[in-house]
Simulated assay, not measured.
Amino acid sequence: MPGLFKRTLFALISALSFASFILILVAMGTPKWMTGKILCKTGAELVNATDPELIKFMGEIYYGLFGGGKMRKCGLGGRHSKFTIFPHLVKQLNTSLHLVIIFFLCAAFSSALASLGFCVFNIIKVPYQAIHGPAGIALWNFLAGGFAVLASTSFMAAVKLHNLTERIANFRENIFQFVILEEQYEDSFWLCIVSAAIHGVNLLLVAISEIRFPSLKTKTEEANVTAEDIMY
């Protein structure tokens, strides 16, 4: 069984891996990855709205991986609506990229669970193969962190390169056209970044667990045997 120092580090790594697993699940289940302000361009052009009047045509939008909502303003007050990405809206997006993001996140939390299992295995018994030792823990943490980073960068690519927010805002809008005034990444997106950072910390802890500290040994004093000791 590993020493107390290693077992403590493995317990900490397992706790962090479980926290990463929870963070990714929360991120996937919440609908606020991105928020933004949208302008009803068609309505503003119809009435030749000037700057003070544009506020009547500015709405809001938020969305995640599976759904979201928006408040559209086209001069007649705000109207709230909700939408789901699957099964219809995803066809208007870059379908393959959106599915890749979900796949990366699923792979990330699966690897985080594998890291948790390997840590528990290393705490309770001595590994009989190298892959079950610190090398295995490092491997799964590297995969989990890498998949979380890939998911985050893929989502950013969908937003910036494929106009994700604008496509969602104009979904099923046959009369009005909306343009994006402002975009902001929200908490669910940053949870994925935190998850990747957690696995980076885990890799550092695995490296620390391999450090062999010098053991302190008490030097035994040499006995000075004298003639008096022999007599007694």
Rank of each mutant, 00 (worst) to 15 (best):
K160Q: 13
R212Q: 12
N94R: 13
Q129Y: 12
G133H: 05
E60R: 14
H88K: 11
A108N: 02
K82D: 08
L46I: 05
A207M: 08
F21W: 09
A197F: 10
G29L: 07
L116M: 12
P31H: 08
N122H: 03
M71H: 05
L181C: 08
S215D: 08
P87S: 07
T30A: 14
V90S: 08
W190H: 11
S209Y: 02
V126Q: 06
A223N: 01
M34I: 15
G75L: 00
A130N: 13
S110N: 00
T218H: 03
I13S: 11
S14F: 13
F213S: 10
V126D: 09
F171S: 10
V126T: 14
G77M: 04
F10E: 01
S115D: 11
F104N: 12
G67L: 02
V100S: 13
V206E: 02
N122C: 11
H132W: 15
L105C: 06
Y63G: 03
I22K: 11
H162Q: 14
L164A: 08
L39I: 13
F10T: 00
F155P: 07
S154V: 01
Y232I: 14
A157D: 14
M1I: 10
H98I: 10
N48M: 07
I211Q: 11
L16T: 12
A169W: 07
P214R: 04
G133M: 02
F18Q: 03
I123Y: 00
N170E: 07
S17V: 05
L76P: 01
A27D: 04
L23Y: 14
N122S: 14
E222D: 13
W190C: 04
F104C: 15
A130D: 15
I137E: 02
S215Q: 12
F103H: 02
F121T: 02
E182Y: 13
V126R: 04
P127D: 05
T165W: 01
I168P: 05
T165M: 12
E173V: 03
K6C: 08
F118C: 02
Y63F: 15
A135I: 14
F147Y: 12
F178T: 04
T165S: 12
P2E: 04
F103N: 05
F104S: 07
V159T: 14
Y63I: 00
A49Y: 10
F142Q: 06
L161Q: 14
S20C: 09
T84I: 06
K219D: 01
I85F: 07
R172F: 08
G117T: 10
E60L: 05
I211P: 03
N48W: 00
N174R: 09
K82T: 13
A169I: 05
I168T: 10
I61C: 05
V149S: 06
L89V: 14
E221W: 00
L97E: 11
L97T: 12
L191C: 06
L204A: 15
N202C: 09
C74Q: 03
E221S: 09
G67E: 06
M156Y: 12
I85K: 01
N141F: 03
I102V: 15
A207K: 02
N94I: 05
V194N: 05
S110R: 00
N202M: 00
A151C: 06
K32I: 15
G69A: 15
T84V: 09
L143W: 11
I230R: 10
V194E: 04
T50K: 12
E228T: 13
G75F: 04
G29M: 08
A112I: 04
Y62K: 08
N141Q: 11
G200L: 05
W140C: 09
E183F: 03
C192Q: 06
S111M: 11
